[in-house]
Every structure is written in C-alpha cells, then in structure tokens.
Write a protein that binds this DNA or RNA. Structure first.
Lengths: 212, 212
DNA sequence: ATAGAACCGTACCGTACGGTACGCGTTCAA
DNA sequence: TTGAACGCGTACCGTACGGTACGGTTCTAT
C-alpha cells in the first residue's frame, strides 16, 4: 500500500530527461510521447526505457522529482505565541495557494487525475501524498501546538486541517483543473495575499481560542 | 464563448446510446471507445457518428444529458426566516456533497479534466457550467435574500458562495478525483449528514447576522 | 591502445482506435 | 409488391504511439 517515494537523487542526465518530460507535459498537456521526450532531451528512447521502465515509470519519476522540489514552510515551534501562530498558518495558506495555482501543479494534477481515470492509481496516490498529505503532516503539529497553547480550539486536528484546506482552496483548484477561463483571467495569483488573509481570518474565527 | 447547452430532448434510441456511453465511462474510466459504445447500445458505429458527429460530440452530449438530470433544490423564498434559511443552505450542502461524491460525477469530472489537459476545454466548461456555476446561480439569490432579511452578513455574495463551497467540499473532491483509497474506504457518503451540519454551522458562524 | 560498455539516432513492429464504407435485413409508404 | 430509407454488423483504412532492435559513435577503464 505504501508508495515508495524514492529520495534517490537523479543524475544530471536523468534530470535533463525529467525536465524535458515536465516541460512537455506543461506545454502539451497530456500529449506526452516518449519520442518527444527523447528528442527534447537529446537522448534515445532506448535509454529512456532503460532508466524509467516505461511511460508510466517516467511520469512517476517526473512527478516525484517535481514534488521533492516543493518546500513546505519550516516553522519554529518554540515560544509559540498568537502572532507567530498566525504567521505560520498564513504561510501555509500562502504556499498552498501558490502551489495549487501554479502551472506545474495544475498540469501534474491533471495528469494524475487522467491516470486515475484509467484504473492506474499510482500517480494519483503520489500526487496526494506529496501535496495534500504533505501539507497535512506539517500543518497538524502546528495546529496541535496552537491548541496546547490555548490559541486554538478543536477536537480533531484532522477536521481542523480539512476545514483550513477548504477555506483556503475553496473552488479554485477544481476550476483551474477544469480550465475555467474566467478564473484564469481573473489573475488568481495577484489576489493570493488577500485570499490568504481572508482564509486565515476565517479559520481563526472558527477555531480561535478564547484569548483570540 | 457561451456554451450551447442543448435542452433538446434526445430520442429514446439516442438516450440508450448515451446511457451506454455513460455506463462505459463509469465502468472503464476514460477507456471509452466508439466500438464499445456501439456494441453496448447495439447500434452501428455509423449511426453513432451520424448522431453525435465524433467522439467528442458523444462525450459532450453524454455530459450535458447527465447534467440535465441533476436537480438543484427548489427553495421557496417567500416568508424567509432563520429556520427556513438554514434548511435551504443545508439542503444545498447536502446536494453538493451527494453529487460530488457520486460515482457518475467523479467519472465525468475526471473525463473533463482529462480533456482540459488536451487543450480541449469544451467538456471542462460544460462540467463547470453544470456543477459549480449551476449551484452558484441558485444559491446566490438565497444568500442575498438572507442578507436582506438581516439573517446573513457579507459584502460579496460571490465570496460568500465560494467560502460555502470550501466549507462543504473541503478536500473531498480532489481526493476522490485522485482516487484516494483512504477516503473512499472511509465511506464518505455515510458522513454526509454530519458534514452538512458542520459546514452549515461554520458558514453561519462566519456569515450569520447579528440575530443569529 | 583497445576492448567493452554506454548511449544516440533511426528504423521498425504491433496494436489500439477513430473514422469510413458497404452489404444485408427490416420497416414503411405508395 | 416494391423500392427507398434506415440502421445493424462487420470489415477495412490510416495514423499515432508504446516499445524494441540495431548500427554507429563516444566515453571509460585497464
């Protein structure tokens, strides 16, 4: 069940291939062909197959490699006060929105959804593991620290996290995945700061401790 | 730009073809082939092409036809009081969650996302139009009626609607689209009622008027 | 220097599938 | 009765693409 998230570093040559694959994915959507990757990376298809097994292996490696580049906020939990907690949470919201609205994330999520639609759930699991669950794992301790400091109030940190996710992401991700022109044109990225603040305010309104 | 949502009724024979297409989509994911649809519907490919033009046309017709079957809550806005408003909003949350977690919706959303990944945005727009925007169009007037009755407080009904969406859907939709086994196993549908109540409570906590 | 591995480029194969053509049965109207 | 339209089943075509094979070239290690 556990997905083997290889932390193995790829050689520069391999990274060139992965870069080619990722770029082609972003440019051409799901129209990624092995021939195109080989041409873009100036390598032979034979080598591609040798290193990544098959097309799915290449996609998985690409997704994992890209996911490893996303850096979650590092939060210092010592001396947690209201201001620090709020900043941490805002920072999580900011990263979440920034990632989710990025061209790369949209592309990889679309690819993973497509794969899931074909009974191949590996890619979907990898994306889940590296986006939702990655954030969840890092945010939960913060929330619980906030609760311990009487700055937050909730029973289930899982539920608190999921509400946070909803407040931050709302319908943005699904609309982007479905190619909503209106939203894209509205220049979501320019509004991230305002949305981060609103979502954080709402989160504290729902889960803030008595001192809040 | 406007998508032509044909309200034209399909003949029973055509509906049989659409049913076949929809069933195959749900069963086999995106592995929908014209040959399979023809065989399932006991018709010839030639007829299929005659009625629907090409594969995309068949998919579009299928999506539109299915979307037309989803019934939004009908709300009586006369004599709006706190209790009626709350019930209306709960009902919207219930429908939203029920639809989003249904096998058919998941399949169609996956199909639309896949299409969007291929620069073909029509399907994505149709799904957006018939899910998110359909709910939005019907919920907004309720929210505004609530505001007029001093039961709700907000400046932008658009923002209020989107927050509502986030509170209700949270990470459920994206996790289902990505095939999250844990969530599927958790039997989301059994928890819908509790989630509806929680989301509505939270919504009123954020947007409830002073009398709330 | 040289054997051998690694790897590039390209040609090739098999298959799956979208789309078309056609033969034949069935229905229905004149 | 007949003929025309409709539509089913099937065979067929072209193409795109995943995957493999192979000849030639560059790199590496002894």
């Amino acid at each position: 069940m556990t997905i083997k998230v290889n932390e193995e570093t790829f050689t520069p040559r391999q990274q060139a291939m992965l870069t080619a694959a990722l770029d082609l994915l972003v440019e051409n959507g799901d129209g990624l062909t092995m021939t195109a990757v080989a041409r873009r990376a100036s390598c032979s298809k034979e080598t591609l197959y040798k290193w990544f097994g098959d097309r799915d292996g290449l996609l998985m490696a690409t997704v994992q490699w890209q996911a490893a580049k996303v850096r979650m906020p590092q939060v210092d939990q010592t001396g947690l006060n209201a201001r620090a907690l709020r900043q941490s949470i805002e920072q999580f919201a900011r990263v979440l929105l920034t990632v989710i609205t990025s061209e790369v994330s949209i592309t990889l999520n679309r690819t993973a959804v497509t794969h899931t639609a074909q009974e191949k759930d590996r890619l979907g699991n990898i994306v889940l593991e590296n986006s939702l669950l990655a954030i969840c794992r890092r945010l939960k301790p913060i929330l619980e620290a906030g609760r311990n400091a009487r700055l937050l109030r909730f029973t289930s940190s899982e539920d608190a996290y999921r509400t946070f996710f909803g407040l931050v992401v709302r319908d943005v991700q699904i609309r982007l995945l479905l190619g909503d022109k209106a939203l894209i044109q509205a220049n979501v990225e320019a509004n991230i700061e305002a949305d981060v603040k609103t979502a954080t305010d709402q989160f504290f309104a729902l889960y803030g401790g008595k001192s809040q």
